[in-house]
């Protein structure tokens, strides 16, 4: 049974409770106010690789100490259309150490994708301890590149843009014609970029003779539209036998002083095994001499 308290005493007790609660809250509120959150910038880039795989690259950066820095571990939701509604969600991801992640546009987004010639994408991240909530958008017009070759190592590429459900050539767009190499692309000639003509086409001459290709001399020819404000990043590629066949040579199986086990030079094996055998034959001979001595002693 609770002890009986007078109304005044009860009131005082409640006042103390409120004071204690406020005292508890003050530092929490003060501390929360002292943490200044940084502004986060979300980037959305569209890629159409060889007219087959469409994907987005979502990046997160923030200005720290006067410089933009890549921000890792930011959870981002990506939506198709500009409405960040859960029905339009096409994927989520967390930025890597490089401050970005790749999101393939899923087949489930096909209906939304097919509605219009232009497409919006929205990336949204919730507020964290260090960063405010952020939103990034990209709007692209659907386009594709066709690539072909002609005699004399001529490269032809054409930019087509979707206009009212029809693919039409687009003029005045910068395009790069290049060869895919291991760590980047190499332009097919000294010309850095080509601009599409009224037929949406560019023509370049391949001037990289003796470029190592695969074992049959095949090279991968690329036509790229890079970071275009309207079309995003487009690419198309084709294999051409214009390279020098690569014969891969390795000294892995060669015999040398620095080779792996079992691949020592013959002269070393001859010398080493010769010495070992010579010395151990002497030792074994001497052991047999002991046997001979034993035999003589037993006679």
């Amino acid at each position: 049974m609770k002890p009986y308290l007078k109304p005044k005493a009860m009131r005082m007790k409640n006042i103390f409770k409120i004071i204690a609660f406020v005292v508890y809250l003050i530092p929490t509120v003060l501390l929360a106010e002292t943490v200044e959150k940084n502004t986060l910038v979300l980037g959305v880039k569209y890629y159409n690789d060889n007219n087959a795989v469409q994907h987005l690259v979502i990046s997160a950066k923030s200005k720290i100490d006067g410089k933009f820095q890549k921000i890792a571990n930011i959870a981002v939701k990506v939506f198709i259309t500009s409405d960040a509604d859960k029905n339009n969600l096409i994927g989520t991801g967390i930025t890597s150490e490089r401050g970005e992640f790749i999101l393939l546009i899923p087949p489930a987004a096909k209906t939304e994708w097919a509605k219009s010639a232009t497409q919006n994408f929205v990336a949204v991240s919730a507020a964290t301890k260090l960063y405010e909530e952020a939103r990034g958008e990209a709007t692209i017009t659907k386009a594709k590149i066709k690539i072909d070759t002609a005699d004399g190592k001529i490269v032809n590429a054409k930019l087509l843009v979707l206009t009212d459900s029809v693919w039409k050539p687009m003029t005045g767009v910068e395009m790069v014609l290049a060869i895919k190499r291991l760590d980047g692309n190499l332009n097919i000639s000294e010309t850095a970029t080509y601009t599409t003509d009224s037929a949406g086409a560019v023509t370049g001459e391949f001037k990289r003779d003796s470029l190592p290709g695969d074992s049959k001399g095949n090279l991968v020819l690329l036509a790229n539209v890079i970071d275009n404000d309207i079309y995003g990043n487009l690419s198309a590629e084709i294999n051409v036998p214009w390279g020098k066949p690569l014969s891969y040579t390795t000294n892995y199986n060669h015999r040398s002083l620095f080779a792996r086990r079992g691949h020592s030079p013959f002269w070393l094996e001859f010398l080493a095994y010769g010495i070992i055998i010579a010395v151990w034959v002497v030792i074994i001979y001497l052991v047999f001499q002991i046997k001979k001595i034993v035999k003589l002693g037993l006679e």
């Binding site: 030792i283 001979y285 001499q289 001595i293 034993v294 003589l296 002693g297 037993l298």
Partner: peptide
């Protein structure tokens, strides 16, 4: 060493063996 009987032949073998060893041990 119970088989050692101080026989001349035993000494001969031993001396030869020690000489061989003395030569072999230097390069080794």
């Amino acid at each position: 060493g119970s088989f050692w009987k101080n026989k001349a032949e035993q000494f001969k073998i031993t001396d030869k063996a020690i000489n061989i060893l003395a030569i072999a041990i230097i390069p080794v």
